[in-house]
């Protein structure tokens, strides 16, 4: 891969992420690609803690911690201020969790991208409110246990398709990425950095603590999510041109679910219906990619 800064680190050791934290890896990869001419806005999320308490910061770039639902708006302000000061070079990035993106921050995000604010919004998705102790979010997948979808009341609703919601805003760039595919992730970050307008990157970031799995499985499980098409890797330009970046070899969802405590209650029938949903979503994506090919 042609990335000059691949060897540079813009993050320090000694952060307080859980062992095997996918979000820590996601940040590390992203910053390698973006470099240090980056200002980062971090609304409330695991990273509010991971970054370290006063007077520490684990990131070697300017960081603005902000209120939970303000990722899109604070970045708009930072961008506007830099523009008016004549600095149009600095990359402004919002780094939010799934709660801050799919749920409480969705309005500000939608507003910012509708205005096509010139910034990158990165959602690192660990599929629940992990920082507060694993409560369900609209990113929590069908079938998952959380502390607010306990026992037999596991979540029986689908995960919100956030990328498609962003694509509907017809923003210049929306992409998914995974900690298990660092080269793809860094390529997308670099690509986003070199574009203008609102750019959205959705990073699948496994959470050993919240998902009930051993820390060493963090990357493996993220890879399986891609391999099973539960979390396909793709990018969409201008809300129209779909590119699927990884064509899976047809792994079944079964093993992915079996490796995680949050799904251990699921029966064979449940898994079959989940497989159907996953296949349906994947076929839908394929159709979109196909349609885009025909019209382009």
């Amino acid at each position: 891969m042609q990335l000059d800064n691949l060897n540079r680190e813009h993050m320090c050791s000694g952060h307080v992420g859980c062992p095997g934290c996918g979000a820590a890896l996601a940040m590390r990869f992203l910053l390698k690609a973006l470099g240090n001419k980056t200002i980062m806005i971090i609304p409330a999320c695991c990273w509010s803690i991971i970054a370290g308490p006063y007077p520490q910061s684990t990131l070697k770039i300017p960081v603005l911690h902000s209120a939970f639902e303000t990722g899109g708006a604070v970045a708009s302000g930072v961008r506007a201020a830099h523009d008016i000061k004549g600095d149009t070079e600095t990359t402004v990035v919002t780094w939010a969790g799934d709660g801050g993106t799919f749920d409480i921050g969705f309005q500000a995000l939608s507003g910012a991208v509708e205005r096509n604010e010139n910034f990158i919004y990165v959602c690192y998705d660990n599929e629940a409110y992990m920082n507060t102790g694993v409560q369900r979010s609209s990113s929590t997948p069908y079938g998952a246990w959380t502390t607010t979808t306990p026992g037999q009341h596991w979540k029986r609703l689908r995960k919100k398709n956030i990328v498609e919601a962003l694509v509907a805003h017809r923003i210049p760039y929306a992409a998914t990425a995974s900690i298990a595919f660092p080269e793809d992730l860094m390529r997308k970050a670099k690509k986003a950095k070199d574009m203008a307008g609102s750019r959205f990157i959705h990073i699948f970031s496994s959470c050993p603590t919240g998902w009930g799995m051993p820390s060493e499985m963090s990357v493996k499980i993220a890879r399986m999510a891609v391999q099973t098409t539960i979390f396909p890797l793709y990018e969409v330009e201008d809300g129209l041109r779909y590119t699927i970046n990884y064509t899976p070899k047809g792994y079944l969802v079964n093993e992915y679910f079996r490796l995680q405590g949050r799904f251990k209650h699921l029966t064979e029938e449940d898994l079959e219906s989940i497989q159907e949903m996953v296949d349906e979503d994947w076929n839908l994506l394929l159709r979109k990619a196909g349609v885009a090919l025909e019209t382009s």
């Binding site: 209120a67 639902e69 303000t70 604070v74 970045a75 302000g77 930072v78 201020a81 309005q107």
Partner: peptide, 15 residues
Amino acid sequence: HSALAALIGAASSGV
């Protein structure tokens, strides 16, 4: 809410 949030971002950038 976003109006003030945006200004928090802008003011933090020194304008």
